[in-house]
Write a protein that binds this DNA or RNA. Structure first.
Lengths: 108, 108
DNA sequence: TCTATTGTTAAACAATTATTAAATTGTCAG
DNA sequence: CTGACAATTTAATAATTGTTTAACAATAGA
């Protein structure tokens, strides 16, 4: 089980519109990753701002990076995301993952 | 599918140690809810601070409240939590919820 | 009604976060 | 080596967030 502090860090990293968009873009782009500049262009974010957000995501363990020539390729790391979802699922329903879904059915 | 902005709001609400602890306590305490004072005592949080955090959680739709006499009982609302987990699961693995688990197996 | 209890609100403040512009590092091509 | 390119770092600033104290509402009970 992931530690609470690490979960908070991961949640905080994703709790920002630009960073959530970055993460989604990386997830959709596969394991080879996307160059920082491409992300900047696609999401219309200034390079310095993007670096700042990458650092936050990276520090939370949500993304990996690899340098290739002048480019830095970022990719999603699913381990932390998975741990986070597992933590939420378990702590959302008191060990019964289906409880939420049942609640959801009742309320939709 | 939950909107991205609502997901960000829910993530932000939980991305704080005290609020995550509050939510977990409410989840563990069942649908009847817990009085604010009990939460304050259990988590050792000042009343005003707790009210502030309850407001954030409430505004994100993660908790419900009901007044009973002098007491205000808070309870977890699973609908938003469930929507959030569903959003993350879908956007984490590009529509394939198992991808994360497989990645996890590889990295553990 | 008076008083104690429960909880929220308001104001002030410290700490953190997000953004920008400018300077810096590292890499490649000529 | 030089110049251009890709990205990060730094410094400054604005905005947001978390906490505390004090004041405020609402309810219950004597």
């Amino acid at each position: 089980m992931m530690k609470s502090a690490q979960v908070v860090k991961a949640l905080a990293a994703l709790a920002q519109p630009t960073r959530l968009a970055i993460y989604r873009l990386l997830v959709a782009s596969g394991p080879e990753g996307v160059a920082a500049g491409q992300v900047a262009e696609r999401l219309k974010v200034a390079p310095a701002t993007l670096s700042f957000h990458f650092k936050t995501l990276s520090h939370a363990g949500l993304v990996d990076s690899r340098q290739d020539g002048r480019f830095v390729y970022y990719s999603a790391n699913f381990a932390v995301m998975n741990g986070m979802v597992a933590y939420l699922t378990e702590n959302c329903c008191g060990g019964n993952p289906d409880a939420c879904k049942q609640t959801n059915i009742n309320e939709n």
